[in-house]
Design a protein around this nucleic acid. Sequence first.
DNA 1: CTTAAGTTGCAAACGATTTGCAATTGAAAA
DNA 2: TTTTCAATTGCAAATCGTTTGCAACTTAAG
Lengths: 152, 152
Amino acid sequence: MKNCVHKHHKKKQELASLTGRLRREARKITSPRAAILEILRHHPHPLTIKEIFAELPKGGCDLATIYRAMQMLEKLGMVKRFDFGDGAARFELVGEGEDGHHHHLICTRCAGVVEIDECFPEEIERRIASVNGFAGVTHRLEFFGVCPGCQK
Amino acid sequence: MKNCVHKHHKKKQELASLTGRLRREARKITSPRAAILEILRHHPHPLTIKEIFAELPKGGCDLATIYRAMQMLEKLGMVKRFDFGDGAARFELVGEGEDGHHHHLICTRCAGVVEIDECFPEEIERRIASVNGFAGVTHRLEFFGVCPGCQK
DNA sequence: CTTAAGTTGCAAACGATTTGCAATTGAAAA
DNA sequence: TTTTCAATTGCAAATCGTTTGCAACTTAAG
Ligand SMILES: [Mn+2]
Ligand SMILES: [Mn+2]
Ligand SMILES: [Zn+2]
Ligand SMILES: [Zn+2]
């Protein structure tokens, strides 16, 4: 088996581990929540609410339930919210203990997504923070371009 | 007079130069448009539609007119649209010939904005593009933190 | 099994942005 | 200048993603 050189090939989290995190936070493991987590853990890229809704088994739950679930999961730090600038929030599972900070490269033609390992250079960010006297500085960063398949 | 070391201290554009650009593009110089440009050219940071609306002289124009004006100005490359992730688009004038690409540092407490000169390192972006076979790659990047005044 | 707090479905409410349309206006043409 | 007409505006209604109130329903305890 070849060695994996991509940091973003994060291992799929066990559903039991996810529900365990929920239980520990005194949250109920409901069927909508289990279904949502099940969908998220099978997807490597951030999903919109509608995408999650679409993947839900027949008779899935209400859209409002997904919105509420994502809010809660975000508050617990179990999912990370991303903004690709198209008006719809996207969510990706975050491994236990991790903060989920990372970036994406998005195809402006087909909306395809690539997980990116690079981050904005720490020392430059530190300089930006100190020069302006800001504390607790982070950043939101996404790349856009045309993927190989979409280049005519 | 001291030398200016901040690239973002861009000079205020003349209203005549702005209307000239409009005229050249076969757009009418209407009173709402002149008022909007006048407001934009007096502000160093991106403004939301509501902020522009609020600064409009009494009996200003309709919100829809501002939305339409910003769409047009953006298409002509006269303003650049920014997204601070709070659901409201922000617009900043772009100098003639420039593309307006730059970033901001936003205070998560008071929403104060600082114009940032730094950009994501070109060679890293180029590497991200080539590694993934993407063409025409750019990025959207904003920094967030707590400004000096808001640090208790 | 009983129970109470936590959750859900559904519909209404929201906030930002867009759009249809009739009335108005800027600026080219006469 | 005055005429003329496409471009533009105001207003209201429509969209879209997201949130919220509330009554009915579950989950996890006890
Ligand atoms: Mn990702
Ligand atoms: Mn700016
Ligand atoms: Zn593509
Ligand atoms: Zn502040």
